[in-house]
């Protein structure tokens, strides 16, 4: 596993963890009525900001854990910090897929709003656009790095 592959693997795990936390927090707090009333959107924005902080910390923590796991399983300190031309091309493809997916879900959110869905659902869909784009981009990178396509 190369340096870039390990980074992508870490990103996928972090994305899944953070998206899972987001979904869990949003659904549980919605059921409790935390986003009802005039301050609902304020609470929603505060939760999203807190979760962004959590995602940064989770990313750092998982990177450390995976570095330790890599050392335990392979006996090597870390893969060589080498990023070559193929890695750059794969990053570009991943970014293209991420932007495409995020844009598609963003437009879906706008269509939902235009069709009369609530602003709260639209905001959550816009948040989902970033989540779908991020995970889609990471998975694309991993598939290309492993040479499965």
């Amino acid at each position: 596993m190369s340096f870039e592959e390990r980074n992508t693997f870490t990103a996928i795990l972090t994305d899944l963890l953070v998206i899972g936390l987001f979904v869990w927090q949003l659904t549980s707090r919605t059921q409790l009525g935390a986003f009802d009333g005039p301050d609902g959107f304020t609470h929603w924005a505060q939760l999203v900001l807190v979760m962004i902080g959590v995602s940064i910390l989770a990313s750092i923590g998982l990177t450390i854990l995976i570095t330790i796991a890599f050392r335990l399983f392979t006996g090597k300190a870390t893969p060589p910090h080498l990023v070559d031309e193929r890695d750059h091309l794969i990053r570009l493809r991943g970014t293209q897929v991420a932007l495409l997916l995020a844009s598609a879900v963003f437009v879906a959110a706008l269509i939902a709003l235009a069709l009369g869905c609530s602003l709260f659902l639209t905001l959550n869909l816009m948040l989902a656009a970033f989540a779908v784009g991020t995970i889609g981009g990471s998975l694309t990178r991993f598939v290309l790095q492993r040479g499965w396509v």
């Binding site: 592959e5 060589p80 080498l82 070559d84 031309e85 193929r86 890695d87 790095q145 040479g147």
Partner: peptide, 22 residues
């Protein structure tokens, strides 16, 4: 040549169009 082993694998398998410099 200053690339990863994965890149050499992809080149050998014809799955990667490498640069002229490489």
């Amino acid at each position: 040549v200053g690339v990863t082993r994965q890149t050499i694998i992809a080149i050998e398998a014809g799955k990667y169009s490498l640069s002229l410099e490489l």
